[in-house]
Structures are given as structure tokens and as C-alpha cells.
Nucleic acid binder design. Structure first.
Length: 494
RNA sequence: GCUCCGGUAGUGUAGCUCGGCCAAUCAUGUAGGGCUCUCAAUCCUACGACACGGGUUCAAAUCCCGUCCGGAGCACCA
């Protein structure tokens, strides 16, 4: 209301600002400090999908002055086997994105706590050890019928439970189930499993335990113990809430506020799965987790995508229940806004063609000065020493065969077969301006689609670690110089 | 099959809780133009959407019902 009376430009600003923040969060009560968490399985570094979770949760915690917890839900040493390095990788990725967790919790460190709550539930008569064959139970359950173990006494259940823990049962012989409603109209909720037996070394805790909690149980207990106030998670986990509410009710706990979002699919990558990436690396199809073809946070980092760009991109997605399908172009657009100002300009001649320029005095060397950044002349100039030989890209060579082009900053030439003729210095309107090099460093640019080889400007070797703009080619991050002097760069985007 | 979600321009999003200020926001994209010795950046203009059908109402993107389309869960995975 006040903004309106202040005029047009103010309300405009407000609109622009609002785009960069998340929608308000429903709050239970204002005095309760907000606690958000992310709960990944540590089986690889963070992908863009995870970045969405890290940024959204971390940003909400920041907005409300709350706490941001990173919890590793590593309770399956077999099917979702954790990768020992991934714990650190994931944390690094969080920090790089700008969201350092206030607290880190590892579920595999806290198994005894889950056992305590399991025991309480048994004693409350809300949980029982089921010795059915899996398929037998399913048949009964699908018909809304209890199995024979459901009515065991607390003492019997405690006995079975102790024997589970001490390793007297084989895998598959016994599970601990939560008593829910065997006639619940949603079959998924009927007396679901909360603990099962797995004899397999865990990468962190070895063979210390053979009874492991299911995610729904572990996660639900932890969210309560950590005083989590808001959970944001994929809508595939909606049943998890319904399951967890059963034992929240038994314990008299209050369930956190939940927000669900749909699946995100990125055009360029399709569905992202950490396990399929891992397989690709093992099979040698990717050079590592930061292979520029991968949708991992570390690959984006290597390609020169700024974390703020990722943040803006993610926040623009909002928190929505519908499945979305978005292009990397949107991320690139965000990144371009950030990096263009600071990206030094250089020439990179891909697929170089050597041209002998006729019609000039070959003994004269001409010094060409080009701005490091055209919008900021105060940043200085780079110098190219030109004689009568230039390299231009194969693409330009083919495209402009028999036509006149401007070699940027130098002079005009007419391209003929493997040579060119000097045709003046005047820039004429509509004359194509192309980049070129008198000579250069061997250079290759790795992009998600291809590897581009060619020549790079000398100054590039002083820009290791920087994101530069290779004129008329695109933005790239200069990674390193190889042993034989080749510049290795990773393509960011156009 | 059962259970549960969703559907605003090419894409993403605001608006939906509390119907009117919505001839629907912003971004991206595409097209055209200005500037520029980069096909970048920047500036200007244009394009483009409430899935469909009923109902309630003076008034519906917003509430109700149905249809269609899309997705998820139904594991001793996370």
C-alpha cells in the first residue's frame, strides 16, 4: 500500500526482488526456532537435484534465522551402499554452494538410539517381530488379514527382538513391523517393516550391526530428535509421512510441517540417478564425478558455473508439487549475468586453418591491442603481434570462402584457398568480424557434447582457474596446463 | 488394479489459502531494432498461457463436480 503511494519505480523494484526469494513458509508458532534438514544417502557427491534440496532448505533456514542440518541416511549397507568418500564430498558441495550445515548427523552412528525406540514400541504393544515369508505376509496384507505373529505377547516379541539383534536369525527370517491398521485402505501403510536383518559390512561401522532400520523409521525418529520443524522432500515420499505419523501418534509427538515437490528433469541430462553415474564411471564412460558431461555440482564447478547462479536458478524453480522439466539454458542465463562482467576476453581458434596473407609487407610486425573487457577499458589490453600469417577457425574459413572479412583489430582480408589477400583497413558496415591468431598455445576445450581442439591466446596461461569468454565461441573455465604445454579448459556455455 | 498428487505462454514461475484491484507477474526463449571492431553484455519492441466441460455467484485462474492428460507410491531401497 505504501509502495503504491511511492510510485511506479518502487513497486517495480519490489517485483524484481521478490523473484529471488522463496515463498513464505507456514509456521507453527513464531517462537519455535526453525529447523530444516536435508537427508541424503551418501552414495556419491551432490547432483543438481540435490543442490535444489541444499539450497532451498539452507535458504529457508537463513531467511528465518533457523538451523540447517545435514543428515546422512546411510542405513542400508547393501542395496544403497554408502560410499565412504561421499560423506566429505557432499559436505564440500554444500559449502561450495554457500550453505554450511549447522550440524551434521550420521545415522549409522546412532543405531542404538533407534533400537531403544524400537524396544519402546514393542513394550507398548505397537510393534512385533514377524517371522513370515515375505510373500506370505504380502498375500495376507493385500487381503487385509493379520499374520499369526501380530498377536504375540510383548515378552515373545522382546525375545525375538533380542535374538534378531544377537544374530540368531538369518536374513529374511525375521523383521520388526509397526502395528498400524491392517485394513488401512492404502496397502502400503499396513504393518510396514521398520527393521530388517542385513549381514553386510557397513563402510563406516563395519559389522557392528546386523539389524538395520528402514528409512521411514530412522528418518522419522531423527526428525523428531533433531527438532526438525519443516521437511521439504519429493512427493514420492508422501507415504512416508503417513507411515511415520503412526509412530508419532504412539509416542505423542507432533509431526513437522511438510512440503512436497515434484520430480525435476533436466532436458540435457534426463533423469538424474547417482547410481547410474557411478556405474558410468566404473565402466570408464566418464573420467570421474566431475566429468563435464555430468549433472553433478562438482562438474558444474569445474565448468565455471557460479554457485550464486545455481542458487538463482534453483530459487526460480520454487517449491511446487508438479513435476518439472527444465533446460540448462536457464541456469546458463543466470550464470552469464554473473560471469560476463568479470570474464576476460580471449581468442580461441578452433580447428585452425593457416592463411598466408598476400599483399602486405611480410617484414612488418603489427601490434594489435584488444581490450580485456570491452565494457571496462580501464582493465587494460592484450596484445597480438601480427605478421603475414594468421589462423582462423575452420568454420569461418568455410563460411567466408571467397568473401571479405574483418580480422578483429587487424585488417580486412579476402579469403581464398589456403591464402588470403589484404584488402584494406577500413571497417565497412555489415562486414563480418572474426577472431584470429598469429600463433598460439595448443588448447582444448571440453564441453558436455564434444572436445574442441585448437589454438589459444598466450594470455590464457595466466588465467588458470578463471572463467573467461572465448570470443565468438563461449565462456569457459581455464582448468590447467598439461605437461606438454596444452591449455585445458572446460566449456561453460554460450 | 488399489492409494495419492498435480495441470497458468516453448520452458520455469507469481497469483489460488481469504472470488472482484488479473484485458494474468517475472524470468528464460524466439523474432525485430539501438549500441558495439565478439554471434557476448546492455537497451528498446514484439510474440506467447489460466487443460476441457458443467455448476455456484452480480463476479471464477481462484470455490464445487465431472472428463481428459501427466506423475508418484503400493519393497526386508533411499
Amino acid at each position: 500500500m505504501l509502495a503504491n503511494s511511492l510510485g511506479y519505480s518502487v513497486s517495480n523494484n519490489e517485483k524484481k526482488k521478490r523473484d529471488l526469494i522463496l515463498p513464505d513458509l507456514p509456521l507453527k508458532n513464531k517462537d519455535q526456532p526453525l529447523v530444516m534438514r536435508i537427508a541424503p544417502n551418501p552414495n556419491g557427491p551432490a547432483t543438481i537435484g540435490h543442490a535444489r534440496g541444499i539450497i532451498t532448505n539452507g535458504e529457508y533456514a537463513r531467511m528465518y534465522g533457523g538451523k540447517f542440518i545435514l543428515r546422512f541416511d546411510d542405513t542400508d549397507p547393501r542395496t544403497k551402499r554408502p560410499l565412504i568418500d561421499a560423506y566429505d564430498w557432499y559436505l564440500e558441495d554444500c559449502r561450495w554452494l554457500g550453505y554450511n550445515p549447522d550440524e551434521i548427523v550420521v545415522a549409522s552412528d546412532r543405531i542404538p538410539i533407534y533400537y531403544e525406540y524400537a524396544k519402546k514400541l514393542i513394550e507398548m504393544g505397537k510393534s512385533y517381530v514377524c517371522l513370515c515369508e515375505k510373500d506370505d505376509f504380502k498375500r495376507l496384507k493385500d487381503n487385509g488379514k493379520p499374520c499369526m505373529h501380530r498377536d504375540q505377547s510383548v515378552e515373545e516379541n522382546l525375545g525375538h527382538w533380542e535374538r534378531m539383534l544377537s544374530g540368531e536369525y538369518n536374513e529374511g527370517e525375521a523383521v520388526l513391523r509397526l502395528k498400524t491398521d491392517i485394513n488401512d485402505k492404502n496397502p502400503a501403510l499396513r504393518d510396514f517393516v521398520i527393521f530388517r536383518i542385513i549381514y553386510e559390512d557397513h563402510p563406516r561401522v563395519g559389522d557392528k550391526y546386523c539389524v538395520w532400520p528402514m528409512l521411514d523409521f530412522e528418518s522419522g525418529i531423527e526428525d523428531h530428535l533433531l527438532n526438525v520443524t519443516h521437511i521439504i522432500r519429493g512427493k514420492d515420499l508422501m507415504d512416508a509421512e503417513r507411515k511415520q505419523r503412526f509412530f508419532y501418534n504412539y509416542f505423542g509427538w507432533e509431526y513437522p510441517i511438510t512440503i512436497y515437490w515434484g520430480r525435476i528433469k533436466i532436458y540435457e541430462f534426463g533423469k538424474i540417478s547417482t547410481s547410474s553415474i557411478k556405474k558410468g564411471i566404473e565402466e570408464g564412460r566418464y573420467i570421474g564425478w566431475d566429468d563435464p558431461r555430468l549433472p553433478t555440482v562438482r562438474a558444474l564447478k569445474k565448468r565455471g558455473i557460479d554457485p550464486i547462479a545455481i542458487k538463482n536458478f534453483v530459487i526460480g524453480l520454487g517449491v511446487n508439487r508438479s513435476d518439472i522439466s527444465i533446460s540448462m539454458e536457464n541456469l546458463y542465463a543466470e550464470n552469464r549475468k554473473i560471469i560476463d562482467n568479470r570474464a576476460k576476453r580471449y581468442f580461441f581458434v578452433n580447428d585452425p586453418i593457416k592463411l598466408q596473407v598476400k599483399g602486405i609487407d611480410s617484414s612488418i610486425e603489427k601490434n594489435v591491442h584488444l581490450p580485456i573487457h570491452p565494457s571496462y577499458p580501464e582493465r587494460g589490453y592484450r596484445e597480438l603481434k601480427a605478421k603475414d600469417v594468421v589462423f582462423i577457425t575452420g568454420k569461418d574459413y568455410n563460411k567466408y570462402m571467397n568473401s571479405i572479412v574483418r580480422l578483429k583489430g587487424l585488417f580486412n582480408i579476402k579469403i581464398d584457398k589456403n591464402e588470403a589477400f589484404y584488402v584494406g583497413d577500413e571497417i565497412k558496415e555489415d562486414m563480418p568480424i572474426i577472431h584470429w591468431l598469429p600463433s598460439g598455445l595448443k588448447m582444448s576445450v571440453l564441453s558436455p557434447e564434444a572436445k574442441y581442439d585448437g589454438l589459444g591466446e598466450e594470455g590464457l596461461k595466466d588465467s588458470i582457474g578463471e572463467v573467461v569468454q572465448l570470443e565468438r565461441f563461449g565462456y569457459a573455465k581455464i582448468d590447467s596446463v598439461s605437461n606438454d604445454g596444452e591449455i585445458i579448459a572446460y566449456f561453460s556455455h554460450k
